[in-house]
């Protein structure tokens, strides 16, 4: 600061403000209190003593304070170091816990996957059994057999419940895997019987003509049906009494799920019965 000589020239009015400030700061003569003071006033010895005492107190207190703060700083540092070490151990512990938790999660995920596979297998099994029992809708190729009363309404030419039973039995024998009569799926609880004037299946009255849809091998099913007693019987009825009897292969049949499949008395059992 002392290197820059004082600038005696007055600063130009539009001089850079910050430069002017710097110039003022480095020119102590400009704001020298003593040079500008009105000397000759009453001098106060008490004031001087007080001021110097205050100065001394200030400096001493500052020194003492700084001295006293040193051990405190040291202690603070130690406390901080201790806390750092503690936090580090905690971080390590938490890290280990995170690792074990991740392993646990992995394990649970694997077991969940396993359970999902089991559920899927069970579902597949259920679907297969539902299709067999009749509680699930099924699709597939098969035959459609349409039978109807004869046109003249003679009693010999009227289809009875036992005729339909024979036809259904014949279809089962011929290799059918699922059968529905007029849209009523035959289940393990289905009965074909006469109630009043009509034939009922699953407690639903049917009206002629009766369409018996059976899923099975469409190439062998019609021929094997005709070889059964039921097939023979319906051929005879058709020839002798004018009963309508048509068998046609279908490449795609859809059978609905059967109704009324609730069991009231029977419960599932894993033990095989002796049938008695």
């Amino acid at each position: 600061m002392s290197l820059s000589p004082p600038d005696p020239r007055p600063a130009p009015p539009h001089a850079d403000a910050s430069r002017e400030l710097l110039a003022r700061l480095t020119r102590p003569d400009d704001d020298d209190e003593y040079a500008a003071a009105d000397r000759g006033g009453p001098s106060s010895r008490v004031g001087l003593a007080t001021a110097t005492a205050a100065l001394a107190v200030l400096l001493t207190v500052a020194a003492v304070q700084t001295q006293a703060a040193q051990p405190q700083d040291e202690r603070d540092r130690e406390v901080l170091l201790e806390r750092l070490a503690r936090e580090k151990t905690e971080v390590a512990v938490l890290g280990a816990r995170a690792e074990s938790t991740a392993a646990e999660v992995e394990e649970l995920r694997a077991s969940t996957l396993e359970a999902t596979e089991t559920v899927q297998a069970l579902q597949a099994q259920l679907d297969t059994q539902g299709a067999t029992v009749g509680s699930a809708p099924v699709r597939g190729p098969g035959v459609r057999v349409v039978v109807d009363d004869s046109d003249d309404g003679a009693p010999e030419g009227t289809i009875t419940d036992s005729d339909l039973q024979q036809l259904v039995n014949g279809l089962w024998k011929a290799g059918a895997e699922a059968i529905a009569v007029n849209g009523q799926r035959l289940t393990t609880l289905s009965a074909i019987r006469t109630a009043g004037q009509a034939i009922t299946v699953n407690y639903r009255s049917l009206t002629p003509p009766y369409t018996v849809a059976a899923i099975g091998d469409p190439e062998t099913l019609p021929a094997r049906l005709l070889e059964t007693a039921a097939g023979q019987m319906f051929s005879d009825l058709s020839i002798n009494f004018g009963v309508q009897f048509e068998v046609e292969a279908a490449s795609e049949l859809g059978l609905p799920a059967g109704s009324r499949l609730e069991l009231d008395v029977a419960t599932a059992s894993t033990k095989g019965g002796d049938g008695a």
Binding site: E33, Y34, A37, R39, S43, S44, L48, T50, L55, L58
Partner: peptide, 27 residues
């Protein structure tokens, strides 16, 4: 306080020290 002290010291060397000015400038 140091600023006031050094100002006073300089004034002393210049021979223009005034204790009233020192007290007032210090405070």
């Amino acid at each position: 306080a140091l600023d006031a002290t050094f100002g006073a010291l300089r004034a002393l060397l210049d021979g223009i020290f005034d204790d009233r000015v020192f007290v007032i400038s210090f405070v």
